[in-house]
C-alpha cells in the first residue's frame, strides 16, 4: 500500500523540480544549438538561457517567471494499491499544486475564463488537469508534472488524406513560422505533432509528444521516426532561431505520435515545448521508496498497443 503522505510530498517536490531544473536531455539539445548557431542575436539568447538555468539551480528559484500551467500525468501500475484510492490521490495533487505555488513560489496562472477569479494557487474548476494511464504487471505509481506555457505555439487543423505529407508539412511550417516570429513560442522547442485520432485525441497526443518524450527518443515505427528526423531538419531550415531572430535554432527535437482516425480525415496538432521545458517524474513504490527522473516514460508498447488484446512482448511469451 503506497502511503498518501508519500504521494503528496513527492508531488510537491516534483512541482519544485519541474519549475527550477531544466531536464538534462533538453539542456544537451540546447547546448548543441549553441555550438552550431551562427546568428549573433539568436546565439546571444541561447547563451543567456544557459546562464539562466545555472542561476535558477544555484538560487533554487523558478527558471522562468511564467511558470506555465501546472498539470499532472499519473501512471498507475495494475497491481498498485494506494491509501485512500484515486480520489485521495487527486486531492493530494491539488494540495501539492497549491502549496508549491505559494512556497516555490510559482506564478498563479489560473483564473476563471469569464470572471477572472484567481485563487492565487493554480487550482480551480477543472484545474490542474490530471490525466491517467495504466501499466500491466507492476505495483508502482509514476507521477509526472508538466508546466507548459499555454498561450502560443500550439495549433490544430483538420486535414484530409488527400492533403498527404505535403499538407502535413505545410501546417507544421505554418505553425512554427506563425508562432516563431518574435519568439512567441519561446523556441528552440521540443515540437510535438499529433496525427489522427479524433479531434481532441490529436491535440492530446501532440501535447504528450512534446512534453512527455525526451530529446533523442524516436517513434517505434521506423517510417515515422524518419519523419521526425526530417521535420526536425525542416524546422531548423526556416532561417529562424531563438526569439525569431535570424538563425538555425528552432527545433530541439520533433516527436510524432499517431492514433487511428476516421477514414475520411487526418486531424493534426502541433505543440511547442519551450526554452523552459518543465517536466519532472517520480516513481513511488509500495515500500515508500521514491525515484526521481526527467524521462516520463509515458509512451510504451502497452500505451501504443494497436490490437484488441494486450499480448505480452514475444520475449516473455517465449520463456
Amino acid at each position: 500500500m503506497i502511503p498518501m503522505s508519500t504521494l503528496e510530498r513527492t508531488a510537491y517536490e516534483l512541482m519544485a523540480k519541474a519549475a527550477i531544473e531544466i531536464p538534462d536531455d533538453y539542456l544537451a539539445g540546447l547546448r548543441r544549438c549553441a555550438n552550431t548557431e551562427t546568428g549573433d542575436l539568436s546565439a546571444f539568447v541561447i547563451q543567456a538561457m544557459l546562464e539562466n538555468y545555472e542561476a535558477a539551480k544555484q538560487d533554487r528559484r523558478a527558471m522562468c517567471g511564467d511558470t506555465g500551467l501546472p498539470r499532472w500525468y499519473v501512471k498507475i501500475g495494475n497491481e498498485a494499491k494506494m491509501e485512500g484510492g484515486p480520489v485521495a490521490l487527486e486531492a493530494a495533487l491539488r494540495r501539492a499544486t497549491a502549496r508549491a505555488t505559494r512556497e516555490v513560489p510559482l506564478r498563479p496562472n489560473r483564473v476563471h475564463p469569464l470572471w477572472r477569479t484567481d485563487h492565487d494557487n493554480n487550482v480551480g474548476i477543472n484545474a490542474p488537469e490530471i490525466e491517467y494511464a495504466f501499466h500491466p504487471d507492476v505495483d508502482w505509481i509514476d507521477l509526472t508534472t508538466v508546466h507548459k506555457g499555454g498561450l502560443f505555439g500550439s495549433d490544430y487543423r483538420m486535414l484530409f488524406p488527400g492533403d498527404g505529407i505535403e499538407g502535413i508539412k505545410r501546417f507544421y511550417l505554418d505553425t512554427l513560422i506563425g508562432f516563431g516570429k518574435r519568439g512567441l513560442a519561446c523556441q528552440p522547442a521540443i515540437v510535438g505533432v499529433g496525427l489522427g485520432g479524433s479531434k481532441d485525441t490529436s491535440v492530446v497526443l501532440g501535447k504528450q509528444a512534446s512534453c512527455l518524450r525526451v530529446v533523442g527518443s524516436r517513434n517505434p515505427d521506423p517510417k515515422i521516426a524518419a519523419l521526425e528526423d526530417e521535420f526536425k531538419q525542416l524546422g531548423n531550415s526556416i532561417g529562424m532561431g531563438a526569439m525569431g531572430f535570424i538563425g538555425t535554432s528552432m527545433v530541439i527535437d520533433c516527436h510524432i505520435e499517431v492514433g487511428y482516425c476516421r477514414t475520411g480525415g487526418m486531424p493534426m496538432s502541433v505543440h511547442m515545448f519551450c526554452l523552459s521545458s518543465r517536466r519532472a517524474t517520480a516513481r513511488i513504490h509500495p515500500d515508500g521508496k521514491v525515484e526521481f527522473r526527467t524521462d516520463p516514460e509515458w509512451f510504451t508498447d502497452y500505451s501504443r498497443r494497436s490490437t484488441v488484446e494486450w499480448e505480452r512482448p514475444l520475449v516473455e511469451a517465449a520463456e
Partner: peptide, 26 residues
Amino acid sequence: SLFERENAKIAPGLERLYEGTRPATL
C-alpha cells in the same frame, strides 16, 4: 522594430521552404 527587421531578412527564404507543400483542402 528589431523584430520586424529580422522578419524582413527571413521572409525571402520562405517561398523556397514551402515548395512541395500543399495548402489544406479545408
